[in-house]
Design a protein around this nucleic acid. Structure first.
Lengths: 367, 367
DNA sequence: AGACTCCCCGGAAACGTTTACAGCTATCGG
DNA sequence: CCGATAGCTGTAAACGTTTCCGGGGAGTCT
C-alpha cells in the first residue's frame, strides 16, 4: 500500500485521505459516500465508520475552491445599530439561512469609499453574492455595481436605467401618507425633521414633503424644516433648533431614530404629544412601539424589502442569465398614540391619495 | 510554448496563469510579483502591466486553501437586535477590521442546539476564530468549546475551570450597585424584573439582587420579583404583572430592553418616574439615553468586553500555544433622571461596596 | 452462452493559489 | 582566472475537495 503523498497533515486533522485509507477505499469512493451519492452498502458502512472514528469534518475552503461557491452572502448597510437595518437583516438572514447559506454583515458607516472598496473586493470571490443598501449613490458606485463579478442586489433607489436587481419603496409617497394623515386630523403647522439632503432617502423625503404640503395647499415654511443625520442625537438636536424658532403642531420625521430624538426634545421642551404636537416617524421599527406614547410611523416594509432582496439574490446566484428585475414595496402608515386625533376639530380625510391602511394601535394615550 | 493545462476558465476571469502567460513569465514569478516578494525590475513591470490589463484579482478561496486561513472571524450572539450586542459588535468589528479581517455575525436566538451546531461547524474551518456569548451553558457547550479546532473566545461567565479564553463581567456586583444606589436614595420597596433564571446572566442577577437586599437588611418580598425573557415585550408584561399585585418604589431591570418595557408599563399605569418609582436598567446601551426620562443603567462594559475579546482572539489566532486567559471588566453605575434622588429623605450612601462611579446625567427631569 | 446494461470503484485531473527546490546567470572577491 | 555567492526564474508539489473517465464485475435479456 504505497501512498503517493503525505496524507496526514502535521496538525493531525483528518482529511478525506485519512478516511479513505482507514476504510481501505479510494478517496473518490470516500468522497462519494460522504456526499451521499453512490457507494455500495459495504463501502458506505466502512467509510461512515472510518469517518466517525477519526472525527472527519470536510474542509469548507477546499470544497469552496472546487465548487466555486462559498455558501456566504454579504449584506452591506450604513449602520448596523439602526433598527431598520436590524429588521432588514433579520429577514435576509432567515431567507439566506433557509438556503443553507450564511450571512456576512458589513457596516459601511455610509462612507462612499468604504462601500465601493467593498464592492471591488467582491472580485476576489469571497462571497457568492451581496445585498447592499447605499444611502448615497455615485457614478463610481454604479460602475462598481455593474461590473461586479458576483451577483449584487440593491435595496433602495437607483438610477432608473441601471441594469441591476433592485428592490425599492416609495418614500416620497410614504411622507405623503404621513402628511395626509396629519392634515386630516386637523394639523396645519407641520414640521419636518429630515436626514442629509445629499442622500437618496433624504432627497426623496424632502421632495415628498414639499409636494404633499403643496397638494394640500399649505404654504411651505422653511422655518419648519430641519436637517440632521439619520441618528437619534441629530434628530433631537435638530428638533431643539426647530422648536427654538417655530411652533409646529405636528412633526414628520425621516426615520424612527430621528422621531425618538424629536420626542425627547418635545417632552423636554414641555410639549405634550400628541395634544400639542403630533409626531410621525418613518420605518415603523420596534423602537416606535417601545416609546411612550407609542409612535405613529410610516412602514417602508424593511423586512419585506429584505426578504425580497434575498430572494432575488438567491435566484440570481442560481441563474446568472436572469434579466435584471426591479421590485417595489408600498409604504404603509401605522397610526399610534403619538398622532392620535385629539385636536378639537378633526375632519375626515379628503382627497388623499388612496386611503392609508392603518393597524389598530395596541393602546391609546392614557391621559 | 505548449501549456500543460487549460489556463483560461470558461467564465473568462483571469487567474495567475493568465497574467503569467500574458507577461511571458512563470506563474511562480507572477505570484511572487503580485505578492510583492522578489522579482527583477523588468519582470515586476511586465507582471504588473499584464495584471492591470486583464484586471486580475486574486481568488480569496484559493489563497485561503493554501494559507490555511480565511481572514474571517465569527461572532455568535443570541439576538442581534439587542442594542447591547450591537455595541459589542461594533467594538469587535473595529478591532477585527483593523487587523484586515472581516466579521461574520450569527444570531443564535439563544437556542442551545443552534449554538453547539455552530461550534461544531467550526471544524470545517470556514473561519479563523470565533467569539461567542452564550446565555446558557451546558456540558455539551463546554465539550464543543474545548475541542474546537479553531480558537474560540467566550464573552460571559463560564465554568471556572474551563481552559478557554474568556472575558467576563460581574453582573452580581452590577445588580448590587443598582440596589445600593436605590437604597441610598431612600427607596425600600425595590422590585426586580429579571430574565429567565436558567440563563447564566439571569441566575447571576437573581443571586446578586437577593444578596444585595440581604446586605441592606431589607427582607425579600417575592411579590416584588418578576421574570420574563430579556426582551422589551416581556419586560413590559412582567412589570404589568408585578404592578398588579405590589407597589414598588423602585425597579431594577436585568437589562435595558426590559427597563424600557418597564418604563412603558409604569407610565401606562400612571406612575411617575422617578417620583413614584425609580428605575434602573442594565447594560447602559444607547437605548437608556433615548428614553424620557433617561434611564439610569448599570454599564457592564459591553463595548470594552467586545474589544478585549477580539484582542484575545487575534492573539490566540497568532499563537495557539498561549495559555488560556481570563479577563474581567468591572460594572459601573450610570445615574440618570430615571432614578434621580427626588424622595423627601435621601440619605448618603453608606456601607456600599465601593463608591459607584457615576457619570453626570446630561439632563435632569423637567418637572 | 454471449452480449448488453448497470453499477461500483480507483486513478487522476481540476479548482487557483503559494512556495520549496533546484538551476541558471551574473557579480564579486581572492 | 576561477570559485563562491547572491538573486532571479521555472518546475512542481501542496492545500483538500469533487468529479470525469475508464475498467471491471455482476446481473439480465435474448
Amino acid at each position: 500500500m504505497g501512498r503517493k503523498r503525505l496524507q496526514e497533515p502535521a496538525d493531525g486533522r483528518p482529511t478525506v485521505h485519512t478516511v479513505a485509507a482507514r476504510a481501505g477505499v479510494s478517496i473518490a469512493s470516500a468522497s462519494r459516500v460522504l456526499n451521499g451519492v453512490g457507494g455500495s452498502p459495504e463501502t458506505i458502512r466502512k467509510v461512515r465508520e472510518a469517518a466517525a472514528e477519526v472525527g472527519y469534518v470536510p474542509n469548507a475552503i477546499a470544497r469552496s475552491l472546487q465548487s466555486q461557491r462559498t455558501g456566504l452572502v454579504a449584506l452591506a448597510v450604513e449602520d448596523i445599530g439602526n433598527p431598520v437595518y436590524v429588521e432588514m437583516m433579520r429577514a435576509i438572514e432567515a431567507v439566506v439561512a433557509s438556503s443553507g447559506r450564511q450571512l456576512l454583515v458589513h457596516a459601511t458607516g455610509g462612507r462612499i469609499d468604504n462601500e465601493t472598496a467593498l464592492l471591488r473586493r467582491l472580485a476576489n470571490r469571497y462571497v457568492d453574492g451581496m445585498i447592499v443598501s447605499p444611502i448615497r449613490v455615485t457614478d463610481d458606485h454604479l460602475t462598481a455595481l455593474t461590473d461586479s463579478p458576483v451577483p449584487v442586489v440593491v435595496v433602495g433607489q437607483l438610477g432608473a436605467d441601471a441594469p441591476i436587481d433592485n428592490v425599492r419603496t416609495d418614500s416620497r409617497h410614504g411622507v405623503a401618507l404621513a402628511v395626509d394623515h396629519l392634515v386630516a386630523t386637523g394639523r396645519r403647522r407641520i414640521g419636518f425633521v429630515n436626514g442629509p439632503l445629499d442622500t437618496v432617502p433624504g432627497a426623496a423625503r424632502d421632495a415628498g414633503f414639499r409636494a404633499a404640503l403643496d397638494r394640500h395647499g399649505i404654504p411651505l415654511d422653511d422655518e419648519l424644516i430641519e436637517v440632521g443625520d439619520f441618528q437619534y442625537a441629530a434628530g433631537r438636536a435638530a428638533t431643539e433648533r426647530l422648536l427654538a424658532r417655530a411652533d409646529p403642531d405636528a412633526l414628520v420625521c425621516a426615520n424612527d431614530l430621528i422621531a425618538v430624538g424629536a420626542l425627547h426634545a418635545l417632552l423636554v421642551a414641555g410639549r405634550r404629544v400628541p395634544q400639542d404636537v403630533a409626531l410621525v416617524g418613518m420605518d415603523d421599527t420596534e423602537l416606535a412601539r417601545m416609546m411612550f406614547p407609542q409612535l405613529s410611523s410610516v412602514s417602508l416594509g424593511s423586512a419585506e424589502r429584505g426578504r425580497r432582496a434575498a430572494e432575488l439574490l438567491l435566484q440570481r446566484i442560481a441563474d446568472a442569465a436572469l434579466p435584471p428585475r426591479r421590485e417595489q414595496v408600498p409604504p404603509n402608515l401605522v397610526v399610534r398614540a403619538s398622532s392620535a386625533a385629539t385636536l378639537p376639530t378633526p375632519r375626515p380625510a379628503a382627497g388623499s391619495a388612496g386611503p392609508p391602511t392603518t393597524h389598530p394601535s395596541s393602546e391609546g394615550v392614557t391621559a
